[in-house]
Design a protein around this nucleic acid. Structure first.
Lengths: 197, 197
DNA sequence: CGCCACTAGCTATCAACATAGGTATTTGTG
DNA sequence: CACAAATACCTATGTTGATAGCTAGTGGCG
């Protein structure tokens, strides 16, 4: 159900075609929520059937047409109501930590590789998200720019602050992953120091 | 596919019936990986068909029988090979952060509630995982006790260290969530301080 | 002996997501 | 004008996971 609300969220900034929506989920929004186009097209149609969005046919060149989806009042209401509802916290499911619990089944070299990869992956994520935050704060981010145009100036501070806040949370998490992986490398040295090959 | 390896992982400590396996996924292993019994029973049968586990019928009272699953050589090999394989990092999907990015659509009181709930949830998680770590380090944890009995003493240190390490990672993440939620509450005070109701 | 919680095992259905294909049109470039 | 790249849209299939049910035997208690 979250995909639906992610779609509604980006449609509050600007009406989009299915294709554009899918692109957003590869790029900016994709940093917080990922979805393939094969999920997005049918979901948009379901949402249209429920009157949360309205699809308007547009000409596209001499022969083609495309559908641009506009969020409706009902759609905004649904989004607002979701925003007011407390989240259900799903039970944990984390492969990396699950695997780490059984590292005694892997070669020390393999463990080292896993941990280094883990740190590298999240370090890269931090870099990406940091540059997103900068673009958000400077209003250079295209989605932010479109959104700010649509809403009155007194809301701009909140809009920007919350987007940046969300990314800051992701960065905190990623930093925790990096720190954990590093502490794992230290642990490994300790264990192998005690009983070297 | 991860469910399969989670099952293999716990079967390396002791052979289990389907029911016992399901119980593990509600309790201890469930902290890192959750799965309902409706997933576990068919998965065990699939794994038996692929010879990763061997099911042995056991009497259970005068009329009943139950199947206890033993990990096979092939199962151990599959697990070891998975342990040596680098993980694929799935694209991000996080409802709480997605929702936070659009907090301007919620009432400040509602945002405050969300953030407090978020902090409370992960604080509770930290408490649970911390007590797990204690039980692991003191060897009081039943799964750890069973596991240590099965493996030679020189491996005990690693077994315990890696289990504790995994939980430490979860605690780091949860702590990051709590810190983030608290910083969100501060941000909210700032924003509402600028323009109070 | 009746009752109940627990153990044991199983099924059916649905939503969510991944993967991998497909067609057709437009637009820009050499 | 040929061609590639991008735009636009769609489907089919399989896996995973969530939800909710079901039957039936065991073991302990009053």
């Amino acid at each position: 159900m979250s995909l639906r609300y992610a779609i509604l969220a980006i449609l509050t900034a600007a009406p989009l075609t299915g294709y554009e929506t899918a692109k957003r989920f590869e790029g900016s929004v994709g940093h917080v929520w990922h979805a393939p186009d094969s999920q997005i097209y049918p979901e948009l149609r379901r949402m249209e059937a429920e009157a949360l969005v309205e699809g308007r046919e547009e000409r596209w060149g001499p022969k083609g047409t495309k559908t641009r989806y506009y969020i409706t009042e009902a759609g905004e209401a649904a989004f607002r109501s979701w925003m007011a509802t407390p989240l259900k916290y799903a039970p944990w499911r984390d492969v990396a930590h699950m695997q780490a619990a059984y590292f005694e089944w892997a070669e020390p070299a393999s463990v080292r590789m896993h941990l280094k990869q883990h740190a590298a992956h999240y370090t890269e994520q931090i870099a990406q998200w940091s540059s997103q935050i900068e673009a958000i704060r400077s209003h250079e981010h295209p989605m932010i720019a479109a959104r700010l145009e649509r809403y009155p100036a007194e809301q701009h501070e909140r809009i920007v602050a919350f987007k940046a806040f969300a990314y800051e949370g992701l960065i905190r998490l990623a930093q925790a992953e990096v720190d954990w992986a590093r502490s794992g490398l230290e642990l490994l040295e300790q264990l192998d120091g005690d009983a070297p090959a």
